[in-house]
Design a protein around this nucleic acid. Structure first.
Lengths: 102, 102
DNA sequence: ATCCATACCTAGATGGTCTAGGTATGTGCG
DNA sequence: CGCACATACCTAGACCATCTAGGTATGGAT
């Protein structure tokens, strides 16, 4: 799919949209929320979530209340901050591309 | 600077803007045309130009008319086509990010 | 019973970008 | 003149995000 560094923004935004969600649901949310454009393989998303957790931007816990166990993620405060920063960064980046390359 | 896959679009667009230019001038054009936002190291741009030439999107020749020899690049027909395609791709990508993540 | 969707995971390949060097020529300045 | 600096080209290798390609296991439907 070639997200080229924008994956982090997408995952954080997906989590902000859903409030909290497990990995597989996030994959679906990104796919469905983008008309199939952001259809990421699990091998991309799971490691990204682990990285975000190492960075302290998300935290996770096992949800055992369902029949099938799931690792549920939520944004931390730092995650919300990072999301705002990445959104701002995207805007200036996109504006620059727009001005220069289009 | 972290252009993450958008470098090709930028270089092609820079060449389209200038008509034809040598590598060092393209670096300046990208830097100045973006308020310093696209300030790429030579080690990024020269290999990118070589790659684009291998792909047939640009062609080059030595300009010996000046005191200092320069390798001057121009877009090929395929390069113009590729630029249009990448602009279109950018637009749909940016629109999807905008809708989903902002 | 079997198959598919769900749900998680990781090792290793891939490949674009950057770091960090190198070479050489012209130009401005004291 | 000598020196610094900008110009102009180049490449090897590091880095690291993403993808490929596997693996495991459970639940629900037929």
């Amino acid at each position: 799919m070639d997200l080229r560094g924008h994956l982090e923004l997408l995952v954080l935004a997906a989590l902000a949209r859903t409030g909290s969600a497990h990995g597989y649901a996030l994959i679906g949310a990104m796919r469905d929320g983008s008309d199939g454009r952001f259809d990421l393989p699990e091998g991309t998303v799971y490691p990204a979530l682990h990285r975000l957790e190492r960075l302290g931007l998300v935290s996770s816990g096992w949800d055992e209340s369902q029949a099938r166990r799931r690792r549920v993620y939520v944004l931390t405060d730092a995650g919300h901050t990072a999301l705002s920063a990445q959104r701002a960064e995207w805007r200036t980046f996109a504006a620059a591309v727009e001005r220069f390359a289009l």
